[in-house]
Design a protein around this nucleic acid. Structure first.
Lengths: 245, 245
DNA sequence: CGTATTATTGACCACTCTCAAAAAACGTGG
DNA sequence: CCACGTTTTTTGAGAGTGGTCAATAATACG
């Protein structure tokens, strides 16, 4: 049994903390950032790194929940299904995001790779031990979960109360916020998701998504060089539409 | 009738760990259950207990987030607004539920009492110290947050992909699950929320909620003795409707 | 290339919303 | 306790946003 004092003592012996994991380029956002050399060595013994091919299912709703995942490369979608096949995409996830948290021992949603994906995978049965050794990780996970909860709340407002036009504008702005650096205004976004994915994320049909996007294109708010590429031309205007103003 | 004093007396007879806080009747669900006598004593120094009158606003979206709350008595609604007044209710909360977690130092939603409410209130700036003293609390908060996240995911499926009929049926089943003991099949539910609240929770209008409820009443699935009381007559049938079968 | 899949566009329709009025419930003060 | 005004809920009629169905166009992939 390892006491907090011992952990603290161990940490004090170490020199400056390792910057962050050298196996991915998440930087400070990563789960393993800010650990001491010794903590990092222990951390690596808990972790499994896995690559997942594009379109592969990582796990299904109802599967026994054995791992917690953090994406290092690629993009993942999470979704829930109704018995007749209607689908709701819960989240689009990118490097730095967690998924796989569960309540009753089974996953509550399906996770699917939208691109070739690299993940860090933590066995759930070892999580308590890991948190005991490196308590800061538990705080990080709580923070990440709180962030996902806030995103879910935003999406509930979108799904319940926004028009199709506002939904699509919100989606575009969200993509821009997540995938574009702050500086560059006119930056080409590569969409990892299909129109069908966008529709199932926004609670619309593919036809409505398509019509709304061409609408925005005709108004000069965006450009669509090809189906998988998107250029935000008037971010401010889209933001105003997204917020219902 | 069982007085609080009697409950407290019964509990004081017990050795450590203290079963649970004597100030509320949450039992094992409570944040403070399963603590040792000493831990419980320390716990109480962190906590403020507050009563809130019905319909009072506890905090507003954008307010500086100073406290984390746990409900001990009553019911609370959380909601977000669009600039033109459109409202989405994020959650209906009952005894044992937490709220007030925030990311950037401000609350991301408004919290309003639907009944006279009692809460335990934890200052955020003391939370780290509390977790250091009683690490199990951090795990409990993580668990509660994960549970809220799962509920949010279910609600996203409802908002994005269910019909009005399925939404209202889901809502009724959810109420039954949360507010009724498992044994009693025909149990009268007292609704703490208005039709307008239900509509803003389900992404519908009050008219559609009203029409759907009268529909269920005519079909014999429920009874509505008066506006604030509800009797589930055919739970199974409602469950089937809720799941889109 | 030829085939299969995905995306766009069009015409039509239905579910739910909007607007409006009546009915019921609530609150307040006499 | 009842009369009154206010608010909430129910019910109705009509309209509109987004869905359905269908055809065409573009793209991906062997």
């Amino acid at each position: 049994m390892l006491s907090l004092d011992m952990v603290a003592a161990e940490r004090d012996k170490c020199e400056s903390p390792v910057g962050y994991c050298t196996h991915c380029d998440l930087g400070a956002k990563s789960f393993c950032s800010g650990l001491t050399t010794e903590q990092f060595r222990r951390f690596m013994t808990f972790l499994g790194q896995t690559s997942i091919e594009c379109n592969a299912t990582i796990f299904r709703e109802g599967d026994p929940a054995q791992h917690l995942y953090e994406i290092t490369v690629g993009a993942v979608k999470l979704y829930k299904l109704l018995s007749d096949g209607r689908r709701q995409i819960i989240a689009f996830l990118f490097p730095g995001d967690f998924f796989g948290l569960s309540l009753n021992g089974t996953y509550a949603y399906t996770a699917e790779a939208m691109l070739p994906v690299m993940v860090c995978r933590f066995p759930k049965r070892k999580l308590d031990a890991l948190f005991e050794e490196i308590p800061v990780l538990e705080k990080k996970l709580l923070g990440a979960t709180a962030q996902e909860l806030a995103a879910a709340h935003d999406q509930m407002l979108l799904l319940g109360r926004k028009t199709a036009r506002e939904k699509v504008a919100s989606f575009l702005v969200m993509l821009w916020d997540r995938l574009c650096g702050a500086g560059e205004r006119h930056q080409l976004i590569t969409l990892p998701m299909s129109r069908s994915d966008i529709a199932d994320f926004l609670g619309l049909t593919i036809e409505t998504v398509s019509r709304t996007l061409t609408g925005f294109r005709r108004e000069g708010l965006i450009a669509l060089p090809d189906v998988n590429h998107l250029l935000i031309r008037q971010h401010e205007a889209l933001q105003r539409i997204a917020e219902g103003a």
